[in-house]
Nucleic acid binder design. Sequence first.
DNA 1: CTTTGTGGTTGCATTATAAAACCAGATGAT
DNA 2: ATCATCTGGTTTTATAATGCAACCACAAAG
Lengths: 161, 161
Amino acid sequence: MVKRTSFDKDDCPIARSLDAIGDWWSLLIIREALFGSRRFGEFQKSLGLAKNILTVRLRALVDQGILKLAPASDGSAYQEYLLTPKGRGVFPILVALRQWSEEFDDHPEEITTILVDKEKGRPVRKLELHSQDGRLLTAADTALKPRPDTKPSRKLRSISA
Amino acid sequence: MVKRTSFDKDDCPIARSLDAIGDWWSLLIIREALFGSRRFGEFQKSLGLAKNILTVRLRALVDQGILKLAPASDGSAYQEYLLTPKGRGVFPILVALRQWSEEFDDHPEEITTILVDKEKGRPVRKLELHSQDGRLLTAADTALKPRPDTKPSRKLRSISA
DNA sequence: CTTTGTGGTTGCATTATAAAACCAGATGAT
DNA sequence: ATCATCTGGTTTTATAATGCAACCACAAAG
């Protein structure tokens, strides 16, 4: 956006995520990476975005610890972009986006792919949110609570002794 | 973004979702709506965005069938913005974003809220993706498959007879 | 030495956003 | 009835991001 109100200092974790990966290209780049793309050219060809923009996006993703640069892999002295655990952690977000589109899009017939489990080749189930005791939850079953305070006392007051 | 490359015609459901709700404000508006906000003024105050922008966003969300306008609710002759089922369907996306932030953010201590299940008041579990036979799946356990074709033959060839 | 891969730089067009003024209809008090 | 205020916007103007295209540069591959 423009005057990016920089949700960086916002206490809402959703805003924080959006601040990190909430632009049009970043999530798609991560999608391609999860799909197997590693090289600059691969991303550029599959996504069809301008190279300078890809450059900026890749660097931002590396800076944020979502991608990392690895030296080689094939013979060439170039580098490739690999997902970090943080990057792979984006997977559920992508699945949620996909499933929302599958369920509510006005033209679902234009969606040409389905997400399947590799072992059986059958479509996956919908994402599920459970309570700690295992009940399946919907939005109406949840609430937001203030956090008790991260670490009120450090358990040992190193200052005083 | 600017020249919104309009992923509208893209066959990737993730791109399609992003095209619908992939901007900074829309998801936050939906978050507030799930949280209970209904009125123009409520959204404006809680999000602190300019009124003209809120106007545009709200209208876009209504156009997309994510919000709908309902006549009243309290006495006043005003309108309020209510989530449609499509809008409530965004909930898993917000949860996924929240959990990603909770798990990978560099400053998780700045997150001041936790998502709990209303009945017990305890934190929810992480979103889970299962195969149809119930196995818990990670990204590595999944693959993308071309869709068999929505409706290859209509079952009755109305043209020829 | 030519091609390919991997970017960087520049310039221009488009657009989202912000900020503030303005406005019409409803509400509320006198 | 009237005046002031609130609500829910619209309009205008200015600016900052972003997208895109095109050209440049350098390393490696052949």
